[in-house]
Design a protein around this nucleic acid. Structure first.
Lengths: 194, 194, 194, 194
DNA sequence: TATGAATGAGTGTTCATTCAT
DNA sequence: AATGAATGAACACTCATTCAT
């Protein structure tokens, strides 16, 4: 029973990994179920045994990948001693990771109907996760006087703004830029102000 | 003969304006030639008399809109006295304008084949235009000692980074944010550094 | 303009006639759009230029055929002198005509979702048409003392019952019976009572 | 061995009962093997262990149900003293019973390929059964002088016609009518003649 | 005995594009 | 100059059926 369950989960996972590759390559609209099936080495209709629709596959793909990236970034950041370094490490790791899945994440914005609420929900969950982490770091920096420019009541604003800026950089680097050196420059510029 | 040419140009322009509206509303993939034709009050096949394909229409639409936005931003910026204010005004105007055409510009990123070089060309042209303007402003600020942190050899890097950051903010504000106040916060944060 | 309109109507009509043939042959579910297109000598997608969906085609097919049959029956009946003969002629003509389109009409009952209201509407319209005609005939027979067994207040009940019996016979003869002589026997049996 | 055989027969029966419910609800085409399996509480492929195909399941379902209805009707009829009452009881019971399985029986007509002979065979067997019963009753009525209008040589015609009319009424009441009172009216109308 | 897993062969529908007029 | 008509090529999704276990 346990084995069977595992097998099932393995196939679902294999499908998602195949989907990730082709979505990343072709985008949501141009990727067909046949593409995914071919990449997974399965028949087209097999996909429907495991997932209800193309959208559900895309949904799951994004969800997993986002969680992976954020978790990795938070892990990396937590190994740094100071709040400043943590923040910087978090930003940089996010940027590098996201850059590798540029098209995949970008699809969420450009190709999807506004009305698809489930994606909005994913984004909100993610955003909360990010904000929680940044809030913690900023708070720590505030307590340790590292970030003396922040007073208590501005903390929440700073959290939202920082996360926003991170998103902005993510997008910029993901989409517009192929020069890895630019990441450092951009981070420095953001950190120090123009 | 001249009159006919003018008429021709008028129709082409009308089609593009119609296309702009529906692309902005539905994105590239979800917008059909019928949508565009309907919005333009023309027959579907008429579009093919004036443009070779849907892509060509989209192409032209983006090109024009981008030029409009940039020109307006440069105009606004040039009315400011100091380099600092010029830069700020330029950024803010770009952001506000682009925000209004969020989906339109975003399409360029999410829905388009990698292999479509002509869009890349547009982007390069635009980027050059932006860089030229920013370079001018930064240079002026350098000469007037407003931007003392920039030395001559760093100018080019600063130009590229600044334009990059502007793009980043554009994207962020276009896509993730519906609160107009955030624009000011974000600009301040960028200007002063986190 | 008039000519074009006519052409359009001709094609729509041709599609419907093709559809009638294949629906009659295969039923609703087993008939594919490709079947209809093939029979009509058109491309499959051409059908969608003239009709919105398979259901719409089926809808129109039934509607037209029903009207044809009823009109013909009423015409035939009206050429008879007495009410009794009119009624008999009407029944017999309906039966003979409907018999030729057995499967076509029967589809309406066996293959269609209950929830499809538009078909219900067609049936009600048709039923009204039938009832009106039968009422007229019965009324005439009542006034001429041909049908002395009907008193005024029973007229409406008699109308509904007669139409019902006609339907019953239609169904029976359409579906269960391939012997044309049986029509006469059945009519006689109904007319005289078992 | 005997026990196993019994178990086997029980499962086959359970499947058929489940099938009856879903066929009655959705019709033949719209009912999937998954529907049947779900209703039976079995795995989809289990059905193929007991039956060769969907058609075979449908086949068996109809056969059993028809036999049930006819047997019940004949039983009820046989409790009546006179031939006239027997005939009437038989008709009414058939109608009431069949009405409850309207869609199920109707499927036989609307959704099935002409070429499926096995259903034709079922129908013939059933029809023979019905005719035998009606013949017996009519004969009894002829002998007891109840049905004086029938002479010996017309008996066979009368049998066929009566069974036909019953079928007609069955169909009519099954498909077109939701008012139970109409059954009585219709029977009366048939019995007395229009 | 029973079934989870897998799939081939369809199905209705969409849409960019062509072409005769 | 303008377009109605026509269509091929896809595409997401369905389902009866098979097969290994």
């Amino acid at each position: 029973m346990e084995v069977i369950k595992e097998k099932d989960e393995q196939v679902r996972s294999a499908i998602l990994m195949a989907a990730e590759r082709v979505f990343q390559k072709w985008g949501l609209n141009k990727t067909t179920m046949e593409d995914i099936a071919g990449e997974a080495g399965k028949g087209k209709s097999t996909l429907y045994y495991y997932y209800k629709s193309k959208d559900e596959i895309f949904d799951a793909t994004i969800k997993i990948k986002l969680n992976q990236v954020l978790s990795k970034a938070q892990e990396s950041a937590n190994q740094m001693p100071t709040a400043k370094e943590k923040l910087k490490k978090y930003i940089v790791t996010c940027l590098y990771e996201m850059k590798n899945y540029a098209l995949l994440f970008n699809i969420v914005r450009g190709e999807i109907r506004m009305s698809q609420d489930y994606l909005e929900k994913i984004r909100l969950t993610i955003q909360e996760k990010e904000e929680n982490f940044v809030r913690e770091v900023l708070n720590q920096g505030f307590l340790s006087k590292e970030f003396h420019f922040i007073d208590e009541e501005e903390l929440e604003t700073a959290v939202k703004a920082t996360v926003g800026i991170i998103h902005a950089l993510e997008l910029y680097l993901m989409l517009e830029n192929d020069d890895p050196k630019q990441i450092d420059i951009a981070v420095k510029l953001i950190t120090n102000g123009i």
